[in-house]
Design a protein around this nucleic acid. Structure first.
Length: 1056
RNA sequence: GGGCCACUAGCUCAGUUGGUUAGAGCGCGCCCCUGAUAAGGGCGAGGUCUGUGGUUCAAAUCCACAGUGGCCCA
């Protein structure tokens, strides 16, 4: 017959997960799910590509878990989905890793190696790591259409970007401009900031700092004091800047006058400069000066003068800043504002270009000395000394960064800005502040620099004609073929990458002359941003595209706001005038379990492969889902152990159920018990279950796995520590009476429903449980838990009163246990009575209904609710501020005071009778309604009681001989059970028990009396066929025990 | 320089629209249970919510300023 399989006690997640992975593979579970939902309404998720450059990390696993959880949730709700995973394949980071592999450290080595070879190496790396990442994701439990992943290096992706670029061009947004880039002269590469995210790019270095005195034009013996730490930029100086509102001084020394800011006078002058006049910086603006290197050819043909700049400060230097617009981003911007002359002094390797006299052809790493000599000779050096500061360095080779103006291609953002902002208002961001972050970015975004002077990337389809200077933008491969000087060559292209694409020349669209492609490749965010179009056949006019676009949901790390989310939005608004996604979930970073960033060199990094095989994927997934998306996640083995302990609670309940269901041959397919006739405990857990399903559904609809998993945790705790704990005995009553069946039916219903509710988060564990609990007894059920429907809830079963009363019962039990603790009387010893103070008649009625559970949990014989006449307690009357505040305003304090003065006992009586309590405030009598007064019980010092929030529980601790005997019986049961376990008996073994008392007659009589009163109960509890009042035969398991002070020799043997 | 977000128990974090005994887990101390047992459970000690000022009858919660940390943009 079909039945439940035995469940192992401990749960080894990794090995269980490998079993389930095999099961899914063998049964093609994922394909069946896709098939099942394919004609249903759609839910569109678009995957942000993961860079296929390294194995995936535990931080990727966080995001991938969300992606999987919500896709599974929507699948259970029946939605059709695409399940397309994506890989990011191009860009600087990938090139860098390949360079490292090949042992290169400069761009020139790549050129020597050959671009074709290099491109092939890049592709190889992508292919390798996309496979690695795919396998890792499968191991995480992610269900995707893995054979259908998209790659941003594919020709289709490239062609769609061409199309986008052409549209931008048609709108007049595309232009070529200057950009100041951090530049490594050693690697010959710009260090784009987008690509520098998260790297250590600053180091403490010592530079020669130079203070110059530059003559003011037309004024004898007057100088500007100017300071810099980059002497090589002086030859490109075209202006000086001062803060117009800052105070400057004219200072004298040896008959010369120096200008500098007041705040730097002391550090620069060191006692040798005497201020003679103070004035605002604005006074200096417009003055001309003689530059540091006036005779250079590059310095001819423009005037050097002082301009105002409000970011000039006094923390270092002289308050007068040397401006070289060709050597720095800020300087360049300033030059654009004021129309300053721009000089670009060096080439990509750091060598001075023509026009710099003796410097031309020399490298900036070796020109400091000759520069100083020349300046000394000119008599304009005031001081040269060492200066230590933090300075950016190349993250690859450690070389100090130079700033350099380079020509790049841009897409103007001005026209699209307001439309993108408007579209962003229609996106639901989770958390909410994501929208504001995006707004901020959009408001401030500069033009999009789309070109990179690299190799492995999107080939920009820009063809520059040497003859007429026209740039032809090619929008599709077909257009390329049409314009190509040799169309056959286009058809023969192996792929749309360098160097092959560079072989193609076209006829200029303007003059028809032969034009070549510019050498630049594209920003990798173009690659990722075009994905909703390229993966859905936008250019082919595919019908699929409109069905899945815009996406219902996307999710990535918060930093993607200015990267992928931005690129998506930019391209989507450009092409379709609409936002690309309806809902966005963003999350933060992953740190180690102490909140420190994970870093290889700190030794605190955890690799995904290690984590998943040690903790298990489900533990990781639960950990991720339990985390607040708005906060960095602390990941580690300690946290995982916590999570596992909580999951074991669920596993234990499952294990408990199966153990007894097997013993009792419970078959859920053959039994049903209407809810109305089940016990109150059953109805309670069912109410809690339906409430859980309702709330979790709401949570997941809002992409709030965080709240959902907290609720589930609470539910599991209630299930384990109250429902099962309180109801345990019902499962082993022999004979299938109605209550036992109700217990089984209820727990089965709870476990199977709960399993489906957490299936999206823990696909493995729930599959394991489902296969046994459901498929084990019903082969007609769906083959996988992931093919089942999302649970529905029945609002009418959520009995809020019952839930509230059970909560109160639990609170009363907690107070009772506290009182027990104080009294030092073990729970095993029954007590005659407990006294309870509650606040309303409704509460009392609720507890009366549940008193069986309270009494049994505390091992007390009866419960009595105490009212205002009870001597045991005193009362305190407290105003309910929430009601009184709005009603009486500032009088509340006086009312509270007056209430404290009134006779509490009398007041409590009035409230109990539903009558108002009057207080006198400022001679005025105020009647407080009963619900406005909170009657709180207070313990009296001479009783052993516990109170909380005005509720009170007191235990009557008088132990009669009768109760003492009962306690002794419990003690005896306890020892027999221990002995059973030591003897290794099976749960269901029947035994014979021997109780031998060797001491005096009084003790013998005591034990005999206990056995005559409780012998049957002892026998029943311990599955003893008989309890013999004698010492056991020698071959029985035996032990000497202490029974409430009486020495007893206990023995058990298996009954034949 | 501008903006955003945090700051709650030893640690990691909750705390719903302001309402008078501020919660959990871990850790710690003590204990219980023994038919979920190399499991399970309970009780307790720990904070006055970064600081200052303000609004209010009432502030961890709202406002301002300061401090510390983090992120983003310049």
């Amino acid at each position: 017959m079909a039945g439940f399989k035995e469940v192992s006690r401990d749960l080894d997640f990794p090995s269980m997960e490998h079993r389930i992975l095999k099961f899914w593979e063998d049964t093609a579970a994922f394909n069946k799910l896709v098939e099942k939902n394919k004609d249903n309404p759609r839910w569109s998720f678009i995957d942000g590509p993961i860079t296929a450059n390294n194995p995936m990390g535990v931080h990727h696993a966080w995001g991938r878990t969300y992606k999987d959880v919500y896709q599974r949730f929507k699948a259970m709700q029946g939605y059709a989905q695409r399940y397309q995973n994506g890989f990011d394949c191009q860009g600087l980071w990938l090139e860098v890793e390949v360079e490292k592999d090949l042992g290169f450290d400069s761009k020139h080595e790549i050129e020597e190696f050959g671009l074709d070879n290099f491109s092939r190496e890049c592709r190889k790396r992508v292919e390798h790591f996309s496979t690695v990442q795919t396998n890792q994701s499968i191991r995480l439990g992610q269900w995707m259409d893995w054979d259908n992943s998209y790659y941003t290096m594919d020709d289709a992706n490239i062609e769609h970007i061409w199309y986008f670029l052409k549209r931008c061009h048609e709108k007049g947004w595309l232009y070529k401009g200057w950009r100041s880039m951090p530049w490594c002269i050693r690697c010959g590469t710009s260090l784009s900031q987008h690509e520098l995210v998260g790297t250590d790019t600053y180091r403490e270095v010592t530079h020669p700092s130079i203070t110059l005195r530059l003559p003011v034009k037309g004024r004898e013996n007057e100088y500007f004091m100017v300071w810099t730490t980059t002497p090589w930029t002086l030859a490109a100086n075209t202006a000086l800047a001062v803060h117009p509102d800052l105070t400057y001084v004219a200072a004298e020394s040896n008959g010369d006058t120096y200008y500098l800011s007041k705040g730097t006078l002391e550090s620069v002058g060191r006692g040798k400069l005497n201020a003679v006049r103070e004035f605002a910086g604005a006074e200096l603006v417009g003055l001309e000066y003689v530059g540091p290197w006036p005779d250079l050819p590059a310095q001819q043909g423009f005037a050097t003068k002082v301009v105002g700049w409000d970011i000039v400060g006094e923390e270092e230097g002289t308050g007068i800043v040397h401006i070289a617009p060709g050597c720095g981003a800020e300087d360049y911007e300033l030059s654009q504002e004021h129309g300053l002359h721009v000089i670009v002094p060096i080439d990509g390797d750091g060598n001075y270009v023509e026009g710099f006299g003796s410097l031309s052809g020399r490298n900036i790493t070796e020109t400091n000395e000759p520069i100083f000599d020349t300046l000394e000779e000119a008599g304009i050096v005031y001081r040269i000394e060492d200066y230590t500061h933090r300075y950016p360095v190349c993250w690859r080779c450690g070389e100090e960064v130079a700033f350099r103006l380079v020509e790049e291609w841009f897409i103007s953002a001005e026209e699209i800005r307001s439309q993108m902002l408007a579209e962003n208002q229609t996106v639901d961001w989770v958390p909410e502040y994501g929208r504001k972050r995006m707004d901020d970015w959009l408001i401030n975004m500069g033009d999009w620099c789309i070109s990179r002077k690299r190799f492995w990337g999107l080939p920009l389809p820009f063809y520059h004609c040497e003859d007429c200077d026209h740039v032809t933008i090619v929008g599709t491969v077909a257009e390329l073929e049409e314009r190509a000087t040799d169309a056959a060559k286009v058809r023969a292209l192996p792929e749309l990458h360098r160097p092959w694409i560079d072989e193609i020349t076209i006829n200029c669209a303007d003059c028809g002359a032969e034009a070549s492609r510019i050498p630049e490749v594209g920003d990798c965010w173009l690659d990722a941003g075009i994905v909703p179009f390229s993966t859905l056949g936008y250019l082919e006019g595919s019908a699929e595209w409109g069905k899945w676009y815009p996406a219902d949901w996307v999710s990535e790390m918060r930093e993607q706001i200015r990267l992928w989310f931005y690129a998506l939005a930019f391209m989507s608004v450009t092409l379709e005038d609409v936002r690309p996604y309806r809902n966005v979930l963003i999350y933060e970073k992953v740190n180690d379990e102490h909140g420190r960033p994970m870093h290889k060199s700190h030794g605190n990094a955890i690799w995904f492969d290690d984590a998943v095989e040690q903790m298990g994927a489900d533990v990781m997934r639960w950990l991720y889902c339990e985390s607040n998306t708005q906060q960095n996640l602390n990941f580690g083995y300690g946290v995982a152990a916590d999570v596992k302990r909580r999951l074991l609670l669920f596993w234990n309940v499952y294990n408990f159920f199966v153990t007894y269901a097997r013993l009792e041959d419970f078959d859920p397919t053959k039994v049903s018990v209407p809810l109305e006739v089940r016990s109150i405990l059953d109805r309670w857990i069912i109410a809690l279950l339906h409430k859980l399903v309702r709330d979790v559904t709401d949570d997941l609809e809002r992409f709030d796995a965080y709240s959902a998993s907290r609720r589930v945790n609470n539910f599991i705790e209630q299930l384990s520590t109250w429902y099962v704990r309180r109801g345990r005995r019902r499962y082993w009553k022999s004979g299938q009476d109605r209550d036992t069946l109700s217990a089984y039916v209820t727990l089965y219903e709870v476990l199977t429903t709960l399993t489906r509710t957490i299936a999206p988060v823990m696909p493995f564990l729930t599959e394991e449980v489902y296969q046994n609990l459901v498929r084990g007894v019903d082969t007609g059920a769906p083959e996988s838990v992931h093919h089942t429907e999302w649970p529905r809830y029945n609002a009418s079963l959520i009995d809020e009163d019952l839930l509230a009363h059970m909560g109160l019962a639990q609170q009363v039990v907690s107070l009772g246990r506290a009182a027990r603790s104080t009294s030092k009387i073990k729970v095993r010893q029954p007590l005659p009575e407990m006294l309870v103070h509650v606040k309303t008649a409704d509460e009392q009625a609720g507890l009366e209904r549940l008193q069986e559970h309270i009494l049994s949990e505390l091992n007390v014989k009866s419960i009595r609710f105490v009212g205002p006449d009870e001597e045991l307690v005193t009362y305190e009357l407290k105003p309910r501020f929430k009601l009184l505040g709005p009603k009486y305003g500032r009088q509340v304090k006086a009312i509270a005071a007056a209430l404290g003065q009134t006779d509490a006992q009398a007041g409590a009586r009035l409230v109990a009778q539903g009558e108002p309590v009057s207080v006198v405030v400022d001679g005025e009598s105020i009647e407080l309604l009963p619900e406005e007064v909170d009657v709180q019980a207070r313990e009296r010092a001479d009783y052993s009681v516990a109170t909380e929030e005005g509720y009170l529980v007191a235990l009557h601790t008088e132990i009669t001989p009768e109760l003492e005997r009962e306690g002794m019986a419990r003690e005896l049961i306890h020892h027999i059970q221990n002995l059973r376990r030591e003897a290794d008996f099976a749960l269901s073994d029947r035994i014979v028990t021997y109780v031998g008392v060797t001491d005096g007659e009084a003790d013998q009589a005591n034990v005999a009396a206990m056995l005559s009163a409780h012998g049957d109960a002892v026998a029943q509890e311990t599955l003893s066929l008989r309890v013999e009042p004698s010492v056991a035969p020698e071959d029985a398991h035996q032990e000497d025990v202490d029974l409430n002070g009486i020495a007893v020799t206990l023995g058990v043997e298996r009954a034949s």
